[in-house]
């Protein structure tokens, strides 16, 4: 069984949310299995509604075959492992990023840097553009504001020529 984080899971909060969902699903699943074992006549309780992310992960877990409690347990284990071990970056943009933009950025990071990378998105309008990335103790300021401030010396020359 090969498990990968789906694009809907971007941040640690998203991951925690999905873990809780899958745990609740597991409870329901086991409870339902027991009911069916005891008597086929028992009504199956309503399957809990899951997010797209949780559904996609459960599809990965069952791998086209029958879903079992063990597979769900393995999935929870994998997700909790990601929560602890996955590299985390904080990206600050100049505006609140839309879902497509978040997915694009996360997809690039998971393709080029680490497949289980998690990203916390923030926004700060004073950046004007670009981004500020914090990874551990490293801070990368690739914002338009920084570029403008670094070019301040050139502005003196421009003002004199005007």
């Amino acid at each position: 069984m090969k498990l990968t984080l789906v694009e809907e899971i971007i941040s640690t909060e998203d991951l925690r949310g999905v873990i809780e969902e899958v745990k609740e699903y597991k409870k329901w699943f086991i409870h339902n299995q027991i009911k069916l074992k005891v008597s086929q006549r028992h009504k199956v309780s309503i399957r809990p509604e899951l997010s797209n992310a949780a559904e996609a992960l459960l599809d990965q877990a069952n791998d086209g075959k029958e879903l079992t409690a063990t597979k769900i347990e393995d999935l929870i284990g994998y997700l909790e492992h990601c929560l602890i071990k996955s590299p985390l970056v904080r990206i600050t943009l100049a505006a609140i990023p839309s879902a497509p933009i978040k997915h694009k950025i996360v997809a690039w990071l998971r393709t080029n840097i680490s497949p289980s990378m998690l990203v916390d998105f923030r926004f700060n309008s004073s950046l004007l553009g670009g981004m500020v990335v914090i990874s551990g103790s490293h801070i990368y300021d690739w914002s338009l504001r920084r570029q403008l401030l670094e070019s301040k010396d050139k502005l003196d020359g421009v003002l004199r020529r005007v």
């Binding site: 943009l93 100049a94 505006a95 609140i96 990023p97 839309s98 497509p100 933009i101 694009k104 950025i105 690039w108 553009g129 670009g130 981004m131």
Partner: peptide
């Protein structure tokens, strides 16, 4: 940000 998405990548 939509106009900046390519620039961000």
């Amino acid at each position: 940000l939509g106009a900046q998405s390519d620039y961000l990548l």
